[in-house]
């Protein structure tokens, strides 16, 4: 049997923060991260709190700018290096290939939950996108009465589910998940687990941070251990 294709690979990835407001304090958060994810595979980032799991995830998305190494993403049949790609190419990769579910929802105020989710759909006519968004929100147990409301006033769990719907509706071949089930109850957690499994079955490569051991065991194929960083002098 042929192994599924590599979707995402990092080579010698390093990320350092220089805090100019704190006297130029340097934090070497990531050193030599070599990671490989294949289609249909889910990797859980592991390590103590503060080890740099979120930093790695954000670097993979191009949200944090890596200081060294490469992040190769399979995009349109070739590999794009997120570290060196032009900003607008990173935008294109995010649009078509790289999905990201952050911990917090950050959207234009006043836009309804349904439109926020429909907006993230790819390749669908507006009506079809809204229908798909409504279906996904239903599945995540967001009642229809909330669909037309802007999510600013929603509870933490509801906002996270909006965020999840937004991340999953695009069907991106690579998904980065930052604590997708952190504020969810058991029923919704199970829905999310099912959604992640379906995405994997559909060939998506997934990298995530899952503090909930139950979720991790349910979906992760392997763990990637991040060593706590050393504070530089």
């Amino acid at each position: 049997m042929i192994a599924p294709p590599v979707m995402l690979r990092t080579e010698g990835l390093a990320k350092r923060f220089t805090l100019h407001l704190q006297g130029g304090l340097q934090l070497n958060v990531l050193n030599n991260v070599d990671l490989e994810v294949r289609a249909g595979e889910c990797i859980a980032l592991a390590g103590p709190s503060g080890a740099g799991k979120s930093t790695l995830l954000r670097s993979l998305y191009g949200n944090y700018r890596a200081d060294a190494g490469r992040i190769l993403v399979r995009h349109n049949g070739g590999f794009v290096d997120i570290v060196s790609a032009l900003p607008r190419h990173v935008v294109a990769v995010r649009e078509e290939t790289l999905g990201y579910v952050s911990q917090f929802l950050r959207v234009v105020p006043r836009v309804s939950a349904l439109d926020i989710v429909a907006d993230a759909a790819r390749g669908l006519a507006p009506d079809a996108a809204r229908a798909a968004a409504a279906a996904l929100l239903h599945r995540l147990n967001i009642p229809a009465s909330l669909h037309i409301l802007p999510p600013a006033t929603f509870s933490g769990g509801e906002q996270q589910r909006i965020n999840l719907a937004r991340g999953f509706i695009g069907g991106h071949p690579i998904l980065l998940l930052d604590e997708p089930t952190a504020s969810l109850d058991t029923a919704n957690r199970d829905v999310v687990i099912a959604m992640i499994r379906e995405a994997k079955a559909g060939g998506a490569a997934i990298v995530g941070i899952f503090h909930d051991a139950f979720v991790r065991d349910a979906i992760a194929d392997r763990l990637y251990q991040i060593a706590p960083y050393q504070q530089a002098a």
Binding site: F17, T18, H20, L21, G62, N63, Y64, R65, P87, V91
Partner: peptide, 21 residues
């Protein structure tokens, strides 16, 4: 200069860090 979310979430220049904070 860079992607907006890079500049705002991972500011590098002291002035940008000051602005963001």
């Amino acid at each position: 200069a860079g992607l907006t979310d890079q500049v705002l979430d991972d500011p590098r220049h002291p002035y940008t860090q000051l602005l963001v904070s």
